[in-house]
Simulated assay, not measured.
Amino acid sequence: MTPALDERNRIRAAMDRILGGTPEHSNGALTIVALAAEAQVPRNALTQRHTDLRSEFYDKVCARGEMPDNEKRLRQQLRRPKELWGADAEQITQLKADVEALVGALHQSTVENALLRQQLADRAGVFRALPAQPRARDSADPELPGLR
C-alpha cells in the first residue's frame, strides 16, 4: 500500500468511528481537526491532499442533520454581536427621535426668546409707576415699635 492509499483508508475508518460515536484517538468532535487526529494523519492531509474526503465528511455530517462543531461554535460567537447590533439599532432610533425633539424645543425656545427680546425693546421708553398702597398698621408690627 502506498502512503496516500493508507492515509485515505485511515481517514475513512476515522470518519466511520467519529460518525458512529466511537472515537479512539480524538474527542469525537465533528471537525477536520478531530478527524485528522482520529485518523492519525496531519491536518493538511485533509485540507490539501484529500479535499474530497474532507467534503465527504462534511456532507455526511450535514446529512445527519447535525452541524459541525466549529460551525456551532461560530454561530454561538455570532449570537452576542447580533444581539448587540439589535440593541444598538434600537438605541440609535431612539437617539434620532430625541435629537429631533430637542431640535424642535431649541427652535421654539429661540423663537420665544426673540419675541420676548422684541417686546422688551418695544417697552424700553415706557415707564409706568404703580400707585402705592397704604400699609395697614398692626400693633404687633416689629417695624413700628412705638405704636402699641
Score class of each variant (00 low, 15 high):
143 E>V: 03
126 V>N: 11
43 R>P: 00
93 T>M: 11
32 I>F: 00
137 R>Q: 08
29 A>T: 07
95 L>M: 13
79 R>T: 12
46 L>W: 07
1 M>F: 03
73 R>H: 14
137 R>M: 13
12 R>K: 14
98 D>N: 12
109 S>E: 12
35 L>I: 01
73 R>F: 14
54 R>M: 07
11 I>W: 01
14 A>W: 07
129 A>Q: 10
136 A>S: 00
120 L>C: 00
118 Q>Y: 01
77 Q>G: 09
6 D>R: 14
135 R>Q: 14
28 G>M: 03
83 E>S: 11
127 F>T: 15
15 M>P: 04
99 V>L: 15
29 A>N: 13
75 R>Y: 05
33 V>C: 00
55 S>Y: 03
40 Q>C: 09
48 Q>A: 09
53 L>T: 00
21 G>I: 04
99 V>A: 14
44 N>K: 12
146 G>R: 02
64 R>W: 01
122 D>Y: 04
53 L>D: 04
48 Q>K: 11
5 L>T: 11
102 L>W: 06
41 V>K: 06
147 L>W: 08
85 W>S: 11
127 F>G: 04
4 A>L: 14
137 R>H: 10
31 T>Y: 00
128 R>V: 15
49 R>W: 03
68 P>A: 15
23 P>E: 11
21 G>D: 05
67 M>I: 15
75 R>Q: 13
89 A>V: 09
59 D>Y: 02
144 L>H: 07
142 P>Y: 03
55 S>K: 15
117 R>A: 06
93 T>Q: 14
17 R>T: 00
99 V>S: 11
11 I>C: 06
115 L>R: 10
68 P>D: 07
45 A>S: 13
47 T>E: 05
77 Q>F: 14
133 Q>G: 04
60 K>S: 07
145 P>F: 03
28 G>E: 02
72 K>H: 08
19 L>H: 09
25 H>T: 04
135 R>A: 13
20 G>K: 01
86 G>N: 11
110 T>L: 11
77 Q>S: 15
125 G>C: 02
98 D>W: 08
42 P>A: 11
8 R>F: 01
50 H>L: 10
39 A>R: 05
12 R>C: 02
104 G>C: 06
63 A>S: 14
92 I>H: 06
99 V>G: 06
52 D>P: 00
69 D>W: 00
72 K>P: 01
59 D>R: 09
78 L>Y: 12
96 K>Y: 09
56 E>S: 05
27 N>D: 15
70 N>C: 03
67 M>Y: 10
22 T>D: 04
29 A>Q: 12
57 F>P: 04
50 H>N: 13
115 L>F: 02
108 Q>E: 15
32 I>V: 09
139 S>Y: 07
7 E>K: 05
56 E>T: 04
21 G>W: 06
74 L>N: 14
110 T>F: 06
25 H>N: 14
27 N>T: 12
47 T>M: 04
51 T>R: 07
111 V>W: 05
26 S>H: 06
97 A>Q: 15
65 G>A: 01
6 D>Y: 06
62 C>Y: 15
129 A>H: 07
23 P>W: 09
80 R>D: 07
94 Q>C: 10
76 Q>T: 15
132 A>I: 05
32 I>C: 01
110 T>Y: 08
135 R>K: 14
74 L>G: 05
39 A>C: 10
105 A>H: 03
66 E>Q: 11
45 A>M: 10
1 M>Y: 03
6 D>S: 14
90 E>Y: 04
70 N>F: 03
82 K>A: 10
21 G>L: 03
63 A>L: 07
111 V>S: 12
27 N>C: 06
140 A>S: 12
144 L>Q: 06
